[in-house]
């Protein structure tokens, strides 16, 4: 990293498989960097203090709040957003389950929700409904009441289990 006159730094990171190098203000959050500098608007800003989960992205494989991490902290990291997961087909079955079960209404929470669930699906093969609810309890949804989301996760798990056997 190199300092600039406006307290900016140059960061180099991998975003959705693409190596990017950009000059960013030291105070810029990762989510603002992704949205405003890279035009990756699939990640949303809901509360700006780590509560609602709308800004959830993957940093080095882990689900992270994009509003609680500075862009400069992501220097050298591998970042993935909903656009990247979509393009490489990593959550295609989950996305189809969301559509079939209407597990989204306004869709604003959905990208963050999908990223949180993707992590759950990798971690656990057969979580209970209560465990699914617990896993997504850091992602607010004001529209659905959550039941359809839990159903969509269960359907995805069942389909993956069927495919595995």
């Amino acid at each position: 990293m190199s300092a600039g006159p406006d307290n900016a730094r140059v960061v180099t990171l991998t975003v959705n498989g693409e190596r990017v190098s950009r000059r960013v203000a030291a105070r810029a959050h990762l989510v603002d960097f992704l949205r405003d500098t890279l035009d990756l608007t699939g990640t949303h800003v809901g509360c700006e203090h780590g509560v609602c989960g709308a800004c959830t992205v993957r940093v080095d494989g882990m689900a992270v709040r994009g509003c609680l991490m500075l862009a400069v902290q992501a220097d050298g990291a591998v970042v993935e957003t909903v656009e990247g997961l979509t393009d490489r087909g990593a959550i295609a079955d989950l996305q189809e389950a969301f559509l079939a079960r209407n597990a989204l209404q306004c869709g604003f929470c959905t990208p963050g929700m999908l990223i949180t669930i993707a992590e759950l699906l990798e971690r656990e093969a057969a979580p209970s409904r209560a465990a699914i609810r617990e896993a997504i309890s850091g992602n607010y949804c004001r529209c659905t009441g959550y039941q359809a989301i839990v159903d969509a996760v269960e359907r995805t798990l069942a389909a993956r289990a069927g495919r595995a056997t």
Binding site: R35, L40, T41, G42, T43, H44, V45, T81, V82, E83, T86, Q95, F98, L99, N102, L104, C106, G107, F108, T110, P111, L114
Partner: peptide
């Protein structure tokens, strides 16, 4: 809804 699950929605801030 498909564009929304793909992060391709167009909300005002986008």
């Amino acid at each position: 809804a498909r564009r929304l699950v793909q992060g391709r929605g167009a909300y005002v801030d986008d």
